[in-house]
């Protein structure tokens, strides 16, 4: 058993060696906002924040998460108030199918934390998540909008 802190709540979970954090979040804690997309760290749909840094949870062993603070898409809100990135996402009408958007939003939150006013080049470098619907221009616009808040 290990203890992981997700969105400020500690959870005792059983996770064998090598089990990625993603599946603990999705199948053990039943928090399904964090998505499985590729399982090999390539698409970014599973992105969560670990101690504030964007991390692809499909390739992060849950055992390494013990004692760290994990933030998932469900934990971005403060009470009922959306995070400014989520709000910007709605205003830009960024999602299409929406499946990649939890990961996109988490990556954007991590980017804005380090670069509050990112340039387009910095957005290109940080936002490597796949959006199969091709909502990239709306996502870019949303990041710029969130940076202004």
């Amino acid at each position: 058993m290990i203890t992981i802190n997700v969105n400020g709540t500690p959870h005792q979970v059983e996770a064998e060696d090598g089990m990625p954090l993603l599946w603990v979040i999705r199948d053990v804690l039943n928090m399904t906002g964090t998505k499985y997309g590729c399982g090999v760290g390539s698409c970014g749909a599973c992105t969560v924040l670990i101690d504030g840094a964007a991390t692809r949870s499909c390739s992060f062993p849950a055992a390494l998460a013990a004692g760290k603070n994990i933030t998932t898409i469900e934990g971005l809100k403060t009470g009922d108030t959306l995070h400014k990135v989520q709000q910007a996402w709605i205003e830009a009408q960024a999602p299409q199918c929406g499946f990649c958007q939890s990961g996109q939003i988490m990556a954007a939150v991590a980017l804005l934390k380090e670069k509050p006013q990112p340039t387009d080049a910095e957005i290109d470098a940080a936002m490597t998540n796949i959006c199969r619907c091709g909502a990239y221009s709306q996502i870019r616009a949303a990041i710029h909008a969130a940076a202004k808040v």
């Binding site: 760290g41 840094a53 964007a54 692809r56 390739s59 934390k113 670069k115 910095e122």
Partner: peptide, 13 residues
């Protein structure tokens, strides 16, 4: 780069 560190995917082992 900021927001997309190597450790986003590459872990301690």
């Amino acid at each position: 780069p900021p927001g997309m560190r190597c450790t986003t995917c590459h872990q301690d082992k």
